[in-house]
């Protein structure tokens, strides 16, 4: 017997999908609070601009490209799942996971270089925000990749294809957060 979340639709939306929208709403509050705090401190502390000049814009731009591309492959996986093509959905999900891995690798090199330069999480408030915001986002990237891996094998077996859309929604949200983090941390200097 299937779990009720996959069969019931009391609100006009499949319950599992509604749960993902609730999750995204709660994530908006989490990231919104963090980014809002950063913005108010940025405006109250002009020296943040000087600190931000040390962030690596090229690495940030590469990661933006990677996440935008992985969003494309996530939506193509969703499209394939709608066509009941689990094999193709599997393939696109793994392209997306490869994007997540690339993002984390670029971020690792970036952080390694920054920490080596002495810009650690305790250096000052800007770097505390930087590592907290980018770190929290990075954890979401890793969590998304793990969820996509689990869903991909089910999709390849032709099971629970609706989950491809659900994990895709989450992934697009992770992309959205980065779309705002990128100008805040890498461009506004």
């Amino acid at each position: 017997m299937k779990p009720i979340a996959t069969t019931r639709s009391a609100t006009g939306i499949p319950t599992g999908k509604l749960a993902v929208w609730w999750l995204i709403a709660s994530e908006i509050v989490i990231f919104g609070g963090l980014l809002g705090s950063y913005i108010m401190h940025r405006l109250g502390h002009p020296e943040f601009g000087g600190y931000a000049s040390h962030t690596n814009t090229v690495a940030g731009a590469i990661n933006t490209f990677v996440l935008l591309t992985s969003s494309l492959t996530a939506v193509l996986a969703h499209h394939a799942a709608e066509q009941k093509d689990g094999e193709k959905a599997f393939k696109y999900l793994w392209f997306t996971i490869a994007g997540a891995a690339t993002f984390v690798i670029v971020k690792s090199f970036e952080w390694h270089h920054e920490i080596e330069q002495g810009y650690t999480v305790t250096a000052n408030m800007f770097w505390s925000f930087y590592y907290c915001a980018a770190g929290l986002h990075g954890l979401h990237v890793i969590a998304g990749a793990i969820m996509m891996a689990i869903v991909s094998f089910r999709a390849r077996a032709g099971k629970e294809l609706q989950q491809v859309e659900l994990v895709g929604l989450y992934w697009h949200f992770v992309d959205l957060v980065w779309i705002f983090l990128f100008p805040l941390l890498y461009i506004a200097k």
Binding site: G32, G36, S37, M40
Partner: peptide
């Protein structure tokens, strides 16, 4: 509306503390 409510809470937080 659900998502916009979450965004509105973000602005409320900002307006209250900034």
């Amino acid at each position: 509306y659900l998502l916009l409510t979450a965004v509105a809470f973000m602005f409320l937080f900002y307006a209250g503390t900034s």
